[in-house]
Amino acid sequence: MKKPAYLFLGFICLCACKFNSSNKTLPIYGNRTAVTKMVNGQVVNDTTYATIPPFKFVDQYGDSTGSQNLAGKIYVADFFFTSCPSICPIMQRNMLAVYKAYKDTPDVKIVSFTIDPKYDTPPVLKNYAEKLGVTGNSWLFLQGNRDTVYRIAEKNFLVAVSKDSTAAGGYVHQGWFVLVDKQKRVRGSYDGTDPKQVAQLIDDIKTLKAEPAAAGK
């Protein structure tokens, strides 16, 4: 008679665990500031989080693409260049896993910014995307003004990039995959050269998708 009771207890514990894990929330990165504002005649304290500022670049199809196309979407950003001999191939190999997982999900995108805009023109980027096996609009390869790309990389996406003639390929950059939520806030940073962290990223996108729109506000 007692055994079923124990089983039942065990089952409840398991349920509790599961419930907790599905309730997991991702941290919000960047500086935050407290704002005091008037709402309906009352003084309210609110927190504003660091967000990715607006940008407007050109994608691999030659179309103007920018933050307005990514509004209300979850996206993963990385910084690369097509002639990169060092960590890019392994990064893009891992990013392909993200692409395969979410290419049919309209509100999840991948954005690869080139840090060599002089060479990586839209035709070069399109050729690269095709050879990588990427079609459609779910993975965008963007060419933008060099200084702007470098600035948002370092200040907003928190990825260090720089030109260095002594490095292989002429540029040094970090291989972070940066996860941005629908409110343009950075929610995660993953080592793009490590398949385990990329698997975590694929998982975290699910968590982010399940997050209610008003969460964290």
Binding site: P85, S86, I87, P89, I90, Q92, R93, L96, Y128, E130, K131, L132, G133
Partner: peptide, 15 residues
């Protein structure tokens, strides 16, 4: 291995 992969598989049409 970075480019040619752990199993020598290359990278689609690129490598």
């Amino acid at each position: 291995q970075n480019c040619h992969g752990q199993h020598g598989e290359g990278l689609n049409g690129l490598i």
